[in-house]
Amino acid sequence: MIRRVSLVVMLVIIFGFFVFSILDLEAFFSTFGKDYFFENGLSETGSVNLVTGIYLDYRLFDSLFEAGLLIAAVSGVTWISQHEITEKNATFMLDRQSTPTLFVTFSRLVYPFMLMFGIYVILFGHVSPGGGFQGGAIVATAILILYYIDVQKATSIDKILTIEKILFLTIIGVGSISFFTKGTFFTNPFDLSASEQVKAIYLITLNALIGIKVALGLVAIFTAFLKEGR
């Protein structure tokens, strides 16, 4: 009981500190960043969606580390979950007998539209809300619906991991092209005076690569959890 009370007192003290520090939030809130991106973001990155422009151009380094962390987490999950028994796939959790027919039929209908929507979100990430990370999650959900449609379909996590590593290296390579054209790493390799359509090639390429990578990573994680269900 004493521990609970002291814990609550500590949390109230933290809360008080936070409220005290946030009182003059207006004073140190600066609009410099967003003004800069509003004026120069489109011309410097060629991306109408400023968020995409930031994580694929100004802060591509962050995105690279995020992709690396994703691959590390996927490797960790598959390494922790490895078994001595090798089997084609996990059919005991998604037994066809227990999956309602309505669910299977509806999955068949919805599957192509989900895939199409995911690819749309990935490819139009630079002009509309979306991007590689969000679209990749949608594509992964669409691929996972395949488990309901065809339970016997085999998924090889090792192959997925290999493809992911290659994609990670490809993302670094595409980001480094600008070193040969402009002399700096991790920015748009095309000239700033080029038209928006030309500059968008770089963004679409990177968004597609990141999207495939995120989708494969999430599929690998889910498959690892399925095999754990014995």
């Binding site: 973001g41 930031i54 962050d62 995020e66 990370f133 999650a137």
Partner: peptide, 19 residues
């Protein structure tokens, strides 16, 4: 417009958090 930097960083946080 709203500041786009926190949004770009929070995409990173969401993906990393899920993994």
């Amino acid at each position: 417009i709203v500041d786009p930097i926190p949004q770009a960083l929070m995409i990173t946080t969401i993906v990393i958090g899920s993994t």
